[in-house]
Structure formats: C-alpha cells, structure tokens
Simulated scan of single mutants.
Amino acid sequence: MLAAYADRMVVVDIGPGADQGDADVVLYDVLGLQHGDGKDLETAVKAHPGRVLALARELQPGLAARALAIGAITSVSLGADAEELADAVEAFADGHLEDGSQADLDNQAERRRQQGRDVNLSPRELDVLGLIVAGRSNEDVAAELYLSINTVKSVIRSVYRKIGVTSRSQAVAWGVEHGFPTGGTIDG
C-alpha cells in the first residue's frame, strides 16, 4: 500500500524474529493480537519506544485498544487510503501526533475512552474489571489481587455504576468493547 510513496519513505517488511533496525515508525497490524498473545507487539514497543503505530480494524475496536494499552502510541484505520496512511506515517515520524495538536488531543481522548479512563475508573477498578472480562470469578479476583471477597463485590458495584451497566455480562461486553483482553493474565 505504501510502495507508491517510495519517494517519501522506505518501507521494510519485518516479519517475526527479524531485526527491526532503526525504524522511525513501526506499523503493527492489530489483527496480530487476535491470533497471538501480543508478545510481538511488546517486542516492537521495547525495540522502538514511542514509534509504534497500530493499524486498526474498524470492526474490532478492542484490538486497537489492546495495542494502545500494550504501548502503541496511536492508531490509524486500515480503512484509510494509501495517501492518508502515508500522511499519518509521516506526521507520526515527525512527532506531530504527540505535540498537543488536535490529532494528539483526539488520540489521547480516544485512548482514555477505550481504556475506561474517561469514566474515572481507578487502577483497582481497572484491575478488577480486567479480570472479570478475562473470565475470572469473584473468588479468583479476590485471590489474585489479595482482596477480601466483600472488597471485590464493592469494587464491582462501583465499576458497574461508573460504566452504566447492571450485570456481569454487560460489564464483560463493555470491557471487550473498550479493549480489555478476554483471556490470559492481567498485568497489574
């Protein structure tokens, strides 16, 4: 898609295990998070801090949110045409998406929305909701976070109130929509 812009940028395909070199921008297709555990994205983020741009899938907004949570700086829709993508890559490489510009502010607001920060979930509430979305029972949450079962129930009630739901299944759906992983472990 970006090959037509060879006069503006050099595009290198870096498959799994390849040397990522000194890239100014690393494009990461969020579909990799659906089929993998995110270790490839973590590796890219560690090798290129502040330089990972996620290619978002509009029909799977939770994947873009997960990519942002893992460390991608921003996302651009895979539905963008080639010129829009090239412009976004150049803007990102030039730091224009982290400079207080409207695009930067919009992206920060979107990350907060996707990760539940716009509803003022506390770090504890984010942890509990993340474990619920991952399929843990209240007892599992209590054991994993070293909390009493009553504290877990109290935090869950607070989460429900803040995100505007009344049941566990609604909370799980909200969490999935906002990028919480649905299985595995939660880093706290």
Rank of each mutant, 00 (worst) to 15 (best):
R113I: 10
A67T: 00
D81Y: 05
N107I: 03
V119D: 06
E90T: 11
A72N: 03
S77K: 07
A91Y: 01
D94P: 02
L85H: 03
L55G: 02
V76A: 13
G100D: 01
A103Q: 14
A54G: 05
G62V: 00
V52F: 08
R57S: 13
G62Y: 06
D106H: 12
A69K: 12
D94F: 13
D94G: 09
Q115G: 12
I70N: 00
N107V: 02
Q108T: 11
S75Y: 14
Q115H: 14
E42N: 08
A56T: 10
D81A: 03
V45S: 10
D81L: 03
G62H: 11
L55F: 03
A80I: 00
A67E: 01
F92I: 03
R51F: 05
A86S: 09
G50S: 07
V76Q: 11
H48E: 07
A67R: 03
I70M: 06
A91G: 14
A93K: 04
S101C: 10
E83F: 01
D118V: 01
S77F: 03
G95I: 02
T74Q: 13
V52M: 09
A88M: 07
A56P: 02
D81I: 04
G79C: 01
G116S: 06
A67K: 04
A80T: 11
L97F: 13
E110R: 15
V89E: 04
T43N: 14
F92V: 02
A65P: 04
A82R: 04
R66Q: 15
L55K: 00
P61H: 07
D87K: 11
L105D: 08
R66W: 03
R113V: 11
D104W: 13
Q102I: 15
V89M: 02
D87Y: 01
R113G: 04
D99W: 06
A103S: 14
G100P: 04
A103D: 13
A93G: 02
I73S: 12
A82L: 00
A44V: 04
A64C: 10
L53I: 00
R57T: 13
V76G: 04
L78Y: 06
V119Q: 08
Q115R: 15
F92S: 02
D106V: 10
L97A: 04
D99K: 09
A67L: 05
H96M: 14
K46F: 10
Q108C: 05
P49N: 10
V89C: 10
E90G: 12
R113S: 12
L53S: 03
S75R: 05
H48P: 06
A80N: 15
A44I: 02
L85T: 06
D118C: 03
S75V: 06
L63Q: 06
L85Q: 04
V76K: 08
D106M: 14
A88E: 09
L53V: 01
D87N: 14
A86Y: 00
L63P: 01
L63T: 00
L59C: 12
Q114P: 01
A93M: 04
L53F: 05
I70F: 05
P49R: 08
D99R: 08
A56G: 11
T43C: 06
L55Q: 05
R111Q: 13
V119K: 13
A65Q: 09
V52I: 08
Q114Y: 12
V52N: 08
A65L: 07
L85E: 06
R111M: 13
L63A: 06
L68Q: 11
A86R: 10
D94N: 15
L105K: 14
R111P: 03
S101E: 09
A65H: 11
T43D: 15
